[in-house]
Amino acid sequence: MSAPAIQITGLTKSFGDVHALRGVDMTIKQGEFFGLLGPNGAGKTTTINIVTGLVFRDEGSTEVFGKDTVKDFRFTRSKIGIAAQEFSVDWFFPIEKLLYFQAGYYGLTQEQAKPKIDDLFERLGLDKKRESRLRQLSGGMKRRFQIAKALVHDPDIIILDEPTAGVDVELRRELWQYLRDLHSQGKTILLTTHYIEEAELLCENVAIIHEGKILKEGSPKDLTRELGKAGITVQLGDVVNGMESYLNEFTFTRDENRLHFSVKDPDSAMPEIIRQLSKADVHIQSIESKVSSLEDVFLSLTGKGINE
């Protein structure tokens, strides 16, 4: 069996008295689109900074394709491309030159890097900005450049730390599509975000991190099923005596002509509710379901919203 793209075991890290990570365990399979979800200060950036070599770990292990990120740093770093949350600034060189430097750090000659750089400039809409300095770019353009830098050496694993923070809706959707394309090419993607919608739309699996610990890991669908608070509300035309006995298998409350059902999965529960109410000879006026979201999951795990 092939080694996971990233395997983190028992990872701890403290900054003075602050325990940033308290034993993080996380496995990201090859080719997976994985989201690390958590509010600011939860430990997302510290975790990825340890994997990429920017922060020393206290305890635990971090492996990339089965190799230790400290002992085999040349191998592990060459496999990873990272788009950091913070923009860097450079006063001296145009962005095209900066990309050639970036490729060079990863062992690519100018000739080897040229086709990739040309392609990235075109794909990310930076072609007309080749000679611009970073300070001359807008926020959105800087974000595109960050992503180009992460991809210039064609890494197998792409780590994006809050890639859509502060970008407009149009660019966000453009970037999402680009990430989907990269994923379909077999790239492993680790995304940290506190945009729930982003994780739900893109990620096959997510881990919820809070106060330096992974609280839950799984697919967004499984997590919402397991921990979400979904519901079905049925508006009745009339109330039939004894109808409750048909609904014994469900948890529900009644509010005059309205029944509120608490269910894990509204899609599978709804046909059965309708069948039982029909059996009881009840006239249904309307029915609506509320699907649970990762936001609900997050709320139930941490007791607060992700942006609080």
Partner: peptide, 14 residues
């Protein structure tokens, strides 16, 4: 100070 160092420290350079 300008956040350029992470580019070097995350590259396969000793």
């Amino acid at each position: 100070l300008l956040q350029q160092l992470p580019d070097l420290l995350t590259a396969p350079l000793s």
